[in-house]
């Protein structure tokens, strides 16, 4: 009997394919592939009046991609407000880990990069107005149940 409910786990997109697709859409991104970790560094301009940002994306299989901004350095907002939707180390929180908005079957170029552009657009308008209008959720940190989101993602 074949168990109809059983599904083979989907294969993650290979690092090579991620690299090829990224090269196709963002040919100016510099890429480095070492020890099965890909690092892309490139510049994007989130919107017409926005400035350019140099971003860094680190990707490896079975880990969530990490996105950070190299230039300009992210800074606190009006009256020293902390930057919203970031993990420690100012890494960007681009999607909800439990909502399966991102999986290893998705291309970084078509998910992580557009979300980074969107995040940076809202970051810049937040810097100017003090209001974050990009929506999102903040984790309820309970020390007993979930000691550190950052550690769980590492």
């Amino acid at each position: 009997m074949v168990n109809n409910k059983f599904q083979f786990p989907k294969c993650p997109i290979s690092l090579m394919e991620q690299m090829v697709v990224m090269k196709k859409f963002f040919p100016n991104f510099q890429v480095r592939w070492r020890k099965n970790i890909i690092t892309w560094i490139g510049e994007i301009q989130p919107y017409e009046l926005c400035r350019q940002y140099r971003i860094k994306i680190i990707h490896q299989l079975h880990r969530d991609p990490e996105v950070s901004v190299l230039k300009p350095q992210l800074s606190t907002g009006i009256n020293g407000k902390a930057i919203p939707h970031t993990y420690p180390g100012n890494r960007l929180c681009l999607y909800h880990p439990k909502k399966q908005e991102w999986s290893h079957q998705m291309h970084i170029a078509k998910t992580i990069v557009p979300w980074t552009a969107l995040w940076l657009f809202y970051y810049e308008t937040w810097q100017a107005t003090g209001e974050w209008l990009g929506g999102g959720e903040h984790p309820v940190l309970n020390k007993r149940k979930s000691p550190s989101l950052f550690n769980s993602l590492k």
Binding site: F25, A82, P84, H85, T86, Y87, C93, L94, Y95, H96, P97, K99, E101, W102, M106, A109, K110, T111, V113, P114, W115, A117, L118, W119, Y122, G134, G135, G136, E137, H138, P139, L149
Partner: peptide
Amino acid sequence: IVVPKNTFYGQ
């Protein structure tokens, strides 16, 4: 490239 649905998360 269409921007897929997402929910910004984190503090």
